[in-house]
Write a protein that binds this DNA or RNA. Structure first.
Lengths: 204, 204, 204, 204
DNA sequence: GATGAATGAGCATTCATTCAT
DNA sequence: CATGAATGAATGCTCATTCAT
């Protein structure tokens, strides 16, 4: 069951739609949503601005579809991880790895999410963002708390601070990550997990 | 030597200017630069939109002054840290602590910097952002490299990845940090350093 | 009796007023009235824009005073010529010479008049422009008609066309004339009169 | 070879563009460029102000296109005259006649040119105005000098003064000329030439 | 599916003007 | 006399959106 209501509108051709959304996502990610003009998206797609309105209701609906599609896939991945009911440390490792895979697949959407979600959550249309954030916090914070209680994670840390630390640490990577670069998502995940779990200092 | 050209104007530095900049910074941080209208800033300042132009040349020049003022102060702090010529680990600790202090003092500016610097660096007017970024990388990456060479930091990590990890981890905190909250900047720095240096996992 | 109502307002210092008007006239002449900002005039005068309003009611009142002062002096000169009741050809010569003297003394005002009078005549405040134009036409056209009737000027010409020809020919000189140049106003008048009266062609 | 860079755009040259330019030219000529608001042009064209920007980049680009189109046609006419390699007097007659024809066809553009060119020449965008002025002077002054040398024109006149006299005399006519009036351009040219060449005085 | 032309609301900015100091 | 700070109306321009073709 997808976290967002909107999947596809009644319109015909679904292939072109996806291409246009990918183009829009790239431009949104590069320039920011409100600094992006509909005309720039159209330019990048090789059509005129007005023509976009055959495919989409509005600029906002493109943003909506980009974000909801991403979140649907993200949660499909997370839910699969959670369904495995692993131990806290293994859950954390799996969540981090899954997150870097999502960054790999939805880099633009992740970047947009990072930049815009704060002031979108307020709008009714983007209510699913708030819902997703709550669920997100429940999953990650819960995993950390369970791990601290079971002795897998340090108990001397402020767990909310640790939550923010892990969360930001992972997702901010979308701002510099370029698919097809030197590191695979799994490789990056391994290194990040190593740092997050064991630190960068040499043990005394 | 300040990283930005404009440090002090010839004018007797009216207090009003500073107030207006603080107001503008808050609004920019909350809504994003391009989604912020000059009217909103004026509203928040209790004057009319046109009146802002008595004090500033343009919306962009407000952004410019906010960012350059922040960077000047940031580098004053960093330079003081570097002048002490501490060992790598102590340098890292001092830089992280100084960074959280800057977030405490310039929360809005830091948030704006995070959000907007990517697409600002290209513009000639904001050339000092690129300069600052280069200097920033030199300082942090250099500290990590020196630490790895001297045995303070793990040598098995990709140092560039570790650099990004530490860098983002610290600055992204500006997005949730609220001055006057439960934790002082120094307390947050201590916890972050503990996680970054030693990890969140319990040692086997 | 001056052609315009306004001579001086009740305000005190008359010397500074004159300087400011001269400055304003220069700027108006160079940039055009509506393209001239009050601030530019103030800059040129070495004061702040708001300070001009101690001396003048408005930008328009400066224009008004510049034009009316000029027209008052012009008509003083013309009236003296007409009072001599010379023959048509001598009247024409005297009017042309007097006109070049006015251009010499009021270059800026003449240039402004040329550029702006067309769309000012409509406004009630500048009603004296229309009055002056009527009087002007009466004087010049009358002189030409009298001259044609008395055999001093060619009778085969359209006298209205000839009027426009002489009028424009003389006044447009204000657009290139620079006081203190190679030619005195009297010298220019002599050459212009020679061309207007005898033409530039060598007689067959 | 046209004096201005932009002669025809790659576009299929929509007729609408020409209509809008004609409207804009009329308004510019009537009110002056800087006193003309874009809204007024739009009103005169029966559309909204913003809609003009579908056709033109800016108010300035309309002015640019009006002036460059006019100058291109003017020089086409002048070049045809010069190609005939007539004697100086016949060249002068042909140039004057051609000028009045241009005034007839481009009345608004000529009026705008007269009013605005002085402070436009400085701007790089309108560099072609300076170029045109130089070429203009070369043609007219050269014709007068050749005529004076060959005995067609009086040699006792200051030739630069005569040049300005003829030049201004002709073009200023655009300020009162109304197409479709009592006189055809050729008729006006004939009378003007009669005055310029032979003067208005009856020969002794 | 796409274009060309337009709309209408809103935006950054300008500018003449005011006024307490 | 002049300044510094503000007003408020207007200006050139942008942009998401619409729609007949």
């Amino acid at each position: 069951m997808p976290i967002s209501k909107k999947t596809t509108t009644g319109k015909p051709a679904p292939a072109r739609r996806g291409e246009l959304l990918a183009t829009a996502a790239d431009v949104f990610a590069e320039q920011g949503y409100s600094a992006t003009t509909v005309r720039r998206i159209a330019d990048a797609a090789g059509i005129l601005a007005g023509s976009l309105y055959y495919h989409f209701d509005s600029k906002e609906s493109m943003l909506d579809e980009i974000l909801s599609t991403f979140l649907d896939e993200l949660w499909a991945g997370y839910d699969a991880v959670l369904a495995a009911r692993l131990a806290p440390r293994q859950t954390l490792e799996a969540l981090v790895t899954e997150s870097f895979r999502e960054i790999d697949r939805h880099r633009a959407a992740v970047a947009i999410y990072q930049r815009e979600s704060r002031h979108l959550v307020g709008q009714p249309r983007f209510g699913y963002l708030a819902e997703s954030q709550r669920k997100f916090e429940r999953v990650w914070l819960g995993t950390l708390e369970r791990g601290a209680a079971e002795g897998a994670f340090r108990a001397d840390l402020d767990v909310r601070l640790a939550y923010r630390f892990v969360r930001d640490t992972v997702w901010v990577a979308a701002s510099w990550y370029r698919p097809g670069g030197a590191h695979s998502p799994e490789e990056i995940a391994r290194q990040y997990l190593s740092m997050v779990l064991d630190g960068i200092a040499v043990r005394a």
